[in-house]
Design a protein around this nucleic acid. Structure first.
Lengths: 106, 106
DNA sequence: TCGCTTGTTGGTATAGTTGCCAACAAGCCA
DNA sequence: TGGCTTGTTGGCAACTATACCAACAAGCGA
């Protein structure tokens, strides 16, 4: 059984992933490094918003970044986070099976 | 590459796990079913607060519950979510290795 | 049936998140 | 150096999440 302190640390890392834009950024970076501008182009959002999302992932230790000329290059530091998604898919499938598609509405 | 809609559905499930109390509840339930009151006893929180956290997990499809006499029994529906934690631990260890312990403060 | 136990729901105050705009900082190149 | 490109930071408004208390609903047993 885990302590509340451990649970708190874990929850911060999970929370960092708990946003569609950040999940997509992780998904895009799983193939390899990408520049900020190429990531930014994938979203119909202000660049400051994208920058802040990437910062959240960086502070969680999931991404790293480095300057290269005028560009900022982002990199997935812990690729196993994409294994997460297999299980999330299992949850979604389990929901569909039980007709409990509550997460699809809203 | 995943769509924004897919990322949104995934993020709702991940968000459901992104709270220390809910992580602890999942951890407690991975050994088997538990009653509401035994879960509630683990937290120094109002029972209504605990009830609402369990509801969040239920709505995500991660837990289920059933009435048994006067008790409410909670059950982990998708045990693979605990595999999540292995990767989260990997992120934490990677952070420590890189002295990037930013998540431990705050 | 009446009261007791058990858990959920409603209401509300506070705290945290998200997104935009504007302003700034750091490189690059003419 | 001056201007251009690129990304980050600060400030603000709208929205969401969390926790408490109070009230309610559903079973159980005397």
């Amino acid at each position: 059984m885990i302590t509340f302190e451990e649970a708190e640390i874990r929850s911060r890392i999970i929370k960092a992933m708990a946003h569609p834009v950040r999940l997509m950024a992780i998904d895009l970076l799983k193939e390899g490094e990408k520049s900020f501008s190429s990531l930014n182009d994938m979203f119909d959002l202000d660049k400051s918003t994208v920058s802040k999302h990437l910062l959240v992932l960086k502070e969680a230790g999931i991404l790293s970044s480095r300057k290269e000329g005028a560009d900022m290059i982002y990199r997935l530091e812990v690729p196993c986070v994409t294994d997460f998604f297999g299980c999330v898919t299992a949850v979604i499938e389990s929901n569909v099976k039980r007709q409990q598609v509550c997460l699809c509405k809203r």
